[in-house]
Design a protein around this nucleic acid. Structure first.
Lengths: 101, 101
DNA sequence: AATATATATCGGAATTTCCCGATATGCCTA
DNA sequence: TAGGCATATCGGGAAATTCCGATATATATT
């Protein structure tokens, strides 16, 4: 885990917001299961983009960045890419802060 | 605690390094107690600057930033300013990551 | 094959961050 | 009060980040 890159990823309001939404997808994306995610793989880019209100390209890049640093996982299924929180990364980060840094 | 500002503060190699040094000041600043800090208030700017190898102005600004976001405390005593980790802030941040974000 | 849809990538303008040298401020001592 | 020392602040060039519109890629449908 590249700590600096993770902290950079968390230094942005929109990205923090997305991570918060992904914590309770049912609450923040009411119809995400019926519309695209049939197998609990996460939320697709379009839904996140709509809720965030930024452009598609920006949100796609943000999600890709969050995945690159390990905070979310990405699963491609057909036309969609589903993004989901990687809880293990948050647990690890929390420990790093309370003991390493 | 402004999360984004804290994460920005942690998104820099030198500042992370300083925080790590301040965790064990006796180890990383062998003579800091005899030379300036007689009352365990922390390490003064000059010692940190020397070890970091960046300019005085840069380190002064970095320490001021770390203090502004609450990760360290600053105590002015005569000509010196002593900086010390604020462990409570790290504990709080660790909890925020494991529960809020 | 042609089209439509979902996502990814590219190029760039505006803003922010990094780190510097120069200078200012505050405190101590002669 | 004059001078020296520790730290803070200012102004700025270079690099990185933010977010956009345009375009490319991949998949599904007709």
């Amino acid at each position: 885990m590249d700590q600096i890159e993770v902290f950079k990823a968390l230094s942005n309001k929109t990205r923090l917001q997305i991570l918060a939404w992904l914590k309770e997808p049912d609450l923040h994306f009411p119809d995400y299961k019926t519309t695209c995610d049939k197998e609990n793989l996460g939320v697709c880019v379009g839904h996140i983009q709509q809720k965030a209100g930024l452009t598609q390209s920006t949100i796609s890049e943000y999600l890709s960045l969050l995945q690159r640093v390990g905070l979310v996982t990405a699963t491609r299924m057909g036309k969609w890419t589903y993004y989901k929180r990687n809880e293990a990364a948050f647990t690890a980060l929390s420990k790093i802060i309370s003991s390493d840094i």
